[in-house]
């Protein structure tokens, strides 16, 4: 159990690091997926811990996977559209709005 938690913590930190440091929209999405998967690992492991026959954690994980796919679909449509307009998927270069 500890092994799962540690692994998921490490993965979460890796994803967070990616989000905080990368500036390309696609890579940002990649990093977010890493974070979501860290959570999925937790959920699947916890599912065995409490009332395993209810499968609550696994249900949560499956729905989470679906949500991640939804986000990716909308996000990639947005990224493509942005690319066609700006010629870049770099978040910093896409900058008409100011603080």
């Amino acid at each position: 159990m500890t092994a799962v938690l540690v692994l998921s913590a490490v993965l979460f930190a890796i994803g967070l690091f990616g989000v905080l440091t990368r500036r390309n929209a696609i890579t940002l999405l990649v990093s977010v997926e890493v974070m979501m998967n860290a959570a999925n690992l937790n959920l699947v492991a916890f599912s065995r811990l409490y009332q395993p026959e209810l499968m609550t954690g696994q249900v949560f994980a499956i729905l989470g996977i679906g949500v991640a796919a939804c986000e990716a679909a909308v996000g990639l449509a947005l990224i493509l559209t942005i690319y066609r307009r700006y010629g870049s998927t770099d978040v910093d270069r896409v900058r008409l709005l100011r603080e």
């Binding site: 930190a13 967070l16 690091f17 989000v19 905080l20 440091t21 990368r22 500036r23």
Partner: peptide
């Protein structure tokens, strides 16, 4: 254009 410094520290703290 990537900025590793602060992000690395924060991610390290959270992960740790």
């Amino acid at each position: 254009a990537d900025r590793p410094g602060l992000g690395a520290v924060l991610a390290y703290l959270v992960g740790g």
